[in-house]
């Protein structure tokens, strides 16, 4: 194995860590006890994935607790505030579908992330299933739940194009014929256009079954979001980071 593709490992690790933290915020606040447990379990899976990815790059505590906002490379989607429960579920649906498709592809290759991907994809299967079940239940539920689920899906739509943008900082994996500009270092064999198409068809199928309308706004270009991979983040991210990092920064080396 050659050197670790640092930029890609960090991007994937930051996605997992930040979403894990957001989901952790639900602990004690979810609509029912089982859901509290479910969201915490999903958060724990993501935290485990983040730790393994960070350990490929350097010291996991330093990477998680001592980097500034601009050094984080996570998607803006995962840092979005929890909002109401429907918002969190829409975020889960969009992200877990992406993560499952990406890890599935990586697991079938022999790149630097194959081992982690093969392990994580089995966990993410459950995350996606969880998000799907809730999307169906809320979308095809009461008038109120339908409206809220629709609102959430529409509000987060503009954050979804970023998932398929190239991850900068590495060599990239350009296609032989030059058509594909590459997705990121260590992601050889993943065609991002194809990934985007598969994501769209998978999400579309779930939304239709849930009697929801697929949002028709753009997912990339002007008026969309998505510079998280370049270290630009949305307003709420700084506050989240402050809360996440403050204990470690105030008490360096503290342990349980």
């Amino acid at each position: 194995m050659t050197g670790t593709p640092t930029a890609t490992a960090l991007a994937l690790a930051d996605d997992a860590l930040i979403l894990s933290h957001r989901l952790g915020e639900w602990a004690g606040h979810a609509p029912e006890l089982e859901e509290d447990v479910a969201l915490s379990n999903i958060a724990l899976d993501l935290l485990g994935q983040a730790r393994i990815l960070y350990s490929l790059v350097g010291d996991e505590d330093e990477l998680a607790y001592l980097r500034e906002e601009r050094a984080f490379r996570n998607l803006q989607l995962v840092e979005q505030p929890n909002g109401d429960f429907a918002h969190s579920i829409a975020r889960q649906l969009y992200f877990s579908t992406y993560q499952r498709l990406l890890y599935e592809r990586l697991a079938s290759g022999d790149g630097p992330f194959a081992g982690l991907a093969a392990k994580a994809v089995k966990e993410v299967d459950y995350h996606q299933d969880h998000a799907e079940q809730w999307t169906l239940r809320l979308g095809d539920g009461t008038t109120e739940s339908h409206e809220r689920m629709q609102r959430a899906c529409t509000a987060l739509w503009r954050f979804t194009g970023e998932m398929f943008e190239p991850i900068e900082g590495g060599q990239g994996s350009g296609g032989e014929d030059g058509h594909d500009e590459g997705y990121g270092e260590g992601l050889d064999g993943v065609n991002r256009q194809e990934l985007a198409e598969r994501w769209l068809s998978s999400v579309t199928a779930v939304l239709r079954r849930a009697t929801l309308t697929v949002p028709d706004g753009p997912r990339s270009g002007a008026w969309t979001a998505g510079a998280g991979r370049q270290g630009l983040h949305t307003e709420s991210f700084g506050r989240m980071l402050a809360e996440m990092q403050h204990l470690h920064r105030s008490h360096p080396g503290a342990s349980w």
Binding site: E34, V37, A38, N41, I42, L44, Y126, H130
Partner: peptide, 13 residues
């Protein structure tokens, strides 16, 4: 099935 997630990550309730 009550919940796909239970007291630990590896179990369903």
């Amino acid at each position: 099935l009550l919940s796909r997630f239970s007291s630990t990550a590896c179990k369903a309730l």
